[in-house]
Amino acid sequence: MRKVRVATTSLAGCFGCHMSFLDMDERLVGLLEHIEFSRSPINDIKHCEPCDIGLVEGALCNADNVHVLREFRQNCKILIAVGACAINGGVPAMRNHFTLEECLNEAFLDEIGVDNPHIPNDVEIPLLLSKVHPLHEVVHVDYYLPGCPPPADAFVKIITDLLEGKEPSLPREILHYD
């Protein structure tokens, strides 16, 4: 039987969700009987191939995040928003309190100890969106896995349910936003 192909990525996130994913520990070994990874920080594949499941951690804070998210949406049959940042902006969205100009000035011009103060403008650097946004404001999202991060058990449950062709659900005790 063909293995179910899974891609994962972290946009504006802290990789905490990925760490939690790896917290599946030895259960991951069992899962690998049934799944294989496409693009993921775990294997360093750079682009998302056509996949069954895409797990996206992190919010959208720059143009590159948007490109990656779109690539995932185009290639993944099922797209899952993982964690608080992907779902409502989370900690990265705390910068929405300030204008982008205030943020960049603080980081690159006004901060004490900055030498050669200038706002980086190399074309290699993705431009920042004026505000940080959750995923569902830009693409359709199929499932949501709340938590900061969602516990390893939540990853096990959602993937196993999907593998078994069930509508994924979580035991209520592990539905948390924190």
Binding site: I87, N88, Y144, L175
Partner: peptide, 21 residues
Amino acid sequence: LQALAYHHDMLDGHFPQFYPR
């Protein structure tokens, strides 16, 4: 508010965030 959200199986905010200052 959070507890009510759990109680009602809320997974996300669904609507675009207003992000007020």
